[in-house]
Simulated assay, not measured.
Amino acid sequence: MQQTTTCHQSNGMFVPVAGLTVFAIASGYLMSLIPLSLANFNIDSSYASWLASIYYIGLLIGSLMIEPIIAKIGHRIAFISFLTLLAATVAVLPFFPHKELWLFARLVAGMAVAGIFVVVESWLLIGDSAKERAKRLGFYMTSLYGGTTIGQLAVGYFGVQGFVPFVVILALLFIAILPPLFIKQGQPDSHGHQVLSLKQITRLSKPAIIGCITSGVVMGSIYGLMPLALKASSLSTNQVGVLMAAIILGGMVIQPIISKLSIVMSKTLLLALMSLLGVFAMGLTYLSTDYVVLISALALLGMSAFALYPIAITLACDNLDSSYIVAATQVMLFSYSIGSALGPIGANSFMSEQNGLMDFFFIVLLATAIYMLIASLQRKPQVLAS
Rank of each mutant, 00 (worst) to 15 (best):
Q3P: 06
Q3K: 09
T5M: 14
T5H: 12
T6I: 15
C7W: 10
Q9P: 08
Q9A: 12
G12V: 03
V15M: 02
V15C: 01
P16K: 08
V17Q: 07
A26V: 02
N40Q: 08
S45R: 14
A48V: 02
Y55A: 12
G58L: 10
G58P: 06
G62K: 11
G62D: 12
I66K: 14
A71W: 04
I73H: 00
I73E: 01
H75N: 09
F79N: 04
F79P: 02
F79K: 03
S81P: 03
S81Y: 11
L85C: 08
L86Y: 13
A87W: 13
A87P: 02
A88L: 13
V90S: 07
A91Y: 09
A91K: 09
L93F: 10
F95D: 00
P97S: 10
H98M: 10
K99D: 10
W102R: 07
L103N: 00
I116N: 03
F117P: 08
F117K: 13
V119L: 05
G127L: 00
F139R: 05
F139S: 10
G147L: 05
L153N: 03
V155W: 03
Y157L: 07
F158H: 13
Q161D: 15
F166L: 05
I169N: 12
A171L: 11
L178S: 08
L178R: 06
P179L: 03
P180E: 06
L181W: 10
I183K: 09
Q185F: 05
P188Q: 03
H191P: 00
G192P: 02
H193P: 04
L196A: 00
S197M: 00
T202M: 11
R203C: 04
L204Q: 15
P207V: 05
C212F: 00
G220S: 02
Y223P: 00
L230Y: 05
A232F: 06
S234M: 06
V242S: 05
M244N: 13
M244Y: 10
A245T: 04
I248Y: 11
G251N: 08
Q255N: 13
Q255I: 07
I257G: 01
I258M: 11
S259C: 14
K260W: 01
L261T: 04
V264G: 04
M265R: 12
T268V: 13
V279G: 01
A281E: 10
Y286A: 15
V292N: 11
I295Q: 06
L298C: 04
L298M: 11
L300V: 01
L301H: 04
S304Q: 08
A305L: 09
A307R: 08
A307C: 07
L308D: 02
L308Q: 11
I311Q: 07
D321Y: 05
D321I: 01
S323Y: 03
Y324P: 01
Q330K: 09
M332K: 00
S335E: 00
S337P: 01
S337M: 01
S340P: 00
A341D: 02
A347W: 15
N348C: 07
N348E: 14
L357H: 13
F361R: 06
L365S: 09
L365C: 05
A369R: 02
I370H: 07
M372N: 12
A375R: 04
L377H: 13
R379E: 11
R379Q: 11
R379K: 12
K380R: 14
Q382F: 02
